[in-house]
Design a protein around this nucleic acid. Structure first.
Lengths: 239, 239
DNA sequence: CGGGTGGTTGAGCTTTCTCAAATAGAGTGG
DNA sequence: CCACTCTATTTGAGAAAGCTCAACCACCCG
């Protein structure tokens, strides 16, 4: 359930049982959302955050001619709009890419939690700063990496992030997206993504087939994507 | 001095005199840094944040072939590495683009400040979330906007951000960067930036000459860049 | 006056895009 | 189990945005 959120927090920083209990208390009843639904709209005032329990979501912005850029992918255990706690309204949309299981976390409770456990406030702030780090890495991809490197780096990132919440089976993980979804992430055309995926397959680096990514040559994939996991801050730490 | 930082904070949210005094207390002695110096290196453990008092700085990441992407521009009044408070080491470098006046803000004092004034903690968190919003807008630029639109959007953003701290004279502001610096921001070649700037000039939208941006047609510039200031969260608010 | 940086120009080339269509698969109703 | 749809993937060919390389020019500053 929402255990993935705890898994994700604990991967980086210890969480006491009191803190865990307080967090759980703040989470509302889970509900289901169909795929391809924009559940959180840009600009709308928010009074709750949303925890993604299961499924995949994306933050995105559109241009007037319909072009779309996904700015961030969310995996289970993410509070997809944690920043709404301070921003109150978002500068982007958030949609489900697959059927999703979600749970609300009211702002009130979260704010109270932060005052009662200042350490948890730092943990949450830390987590939204990691989102920032991922944004920066994506800026590097979008601005400077080749199509090939963008996809390689994305597959590397997702492997580590999914592994964090127990959703990666060594070198293979479920990725329930279409090639078009990937294109929207990496700032390319679906057609070009298709050709690049074929090339990655041909070079025996990764396969993306039947909604599943299988990494065939991890060191080579890292090399092609110039992937450095430091930006994911995966190591255990005090805070 | 560091009054620009207060200006910036107060533009979005009220700050009491007690809070202001506490903030000022935490700021160390200002010092000077030459242009084009990487003052904060990726990965190095940090125990202070850095306030940019005067000048311009940039966060950037490099690829192995020397290609560079600036992920964020910093203007006076920004705490350029506020996220280091929780991250402890950064996932990117930070350099001066011009000669800069800087001041350290030790982490210890800042953490104490946040516990003493939980409201200030939220204000700071809010500000790092705005950095995230700017990252998202840049991802949209890098992923989907044309060269022309990228530059137009950047000039719009900088106008509003500089205006916030009193560094914009109506439709004109100092921007002490080279065309190459701009190229590093928008993910293009200096040569292509040069040609695009010429086109913006020809169309009488903006001029960038002698390190100064002069906007000649604000509505048209907004239109070309598809600029929507919402992501800068410029309105006054409670927090 | 000379050297250095930053801006401008030209020509040819690459990566990626566009448009159009064919193929493959998954799910549905009969 | 088959025909039918719908979506997702694959293929091809031509076009365009932006890149590379190589100069050249215009300052600015000592």
């Amino acid at each position: 359930m929402n255990d993935r959120a705890l898994l994700k927090l604990r991967a980086r920083t210890p969480i006491s049982h009191d803190e865990e209990a307080a967090i759980r208390e703040g989470i509302g009843a889970a509900f289901t959302e169909a795929a391809n639904r924009t559940t959180i709209e840009m600009g709308r005032p928010l009074t709750t955050c949303t925890l993604l329990i299961d499924g995949m979501m994306a933050c995105y912005k559109d241009l007037s001619d319909g072009q779309r850029q996904i700015t961030q992918l969310h995996t289970p255990g993410d509070i997809v709009d944690l920043h709404s706690l301070t921003l109150k309204r978002l500068d982007h949309n958030i949609m489900t890419l697959t059927p999703c299981r979600l749970a609300p976390i009211p702002h009130d409770g979260l704010t109270a939690l932060c005052e009662r456990f200042p350490r948890l406030a730092r943990v949450l702030w830390f987590n939204s700063n990691i989102d920032g780090a991922v944004h920066r890495e994506w800026e590097l991809s979008l601005g400077r990496r080749t199509a090939m490197a963008r996809l390689a780096a994305l597959f590397c990132e997702l492997r580590l992030r999914l592994d964090l919440v127990g959703l990666c089976d060594d070198l293979s993980y479920a990725l329930p997206l279409t090639q078009s979804d990937l294109a929207t992430c990496v700032g390319l055309t679906p057609i070009h993504v298709n050709r690049t995926l074929m090339e990655l397959r041909r070079r025996q680096l990764v396969t993306f087939k039947n909604k599943r990514v299988t990494i065939q040559n991890w060191p080579a994939l890292i090399e092609v994507g110039e992937f450095d996991p430091a930006y994911l801050y995966l190591e255990q730490r005090e805070i």
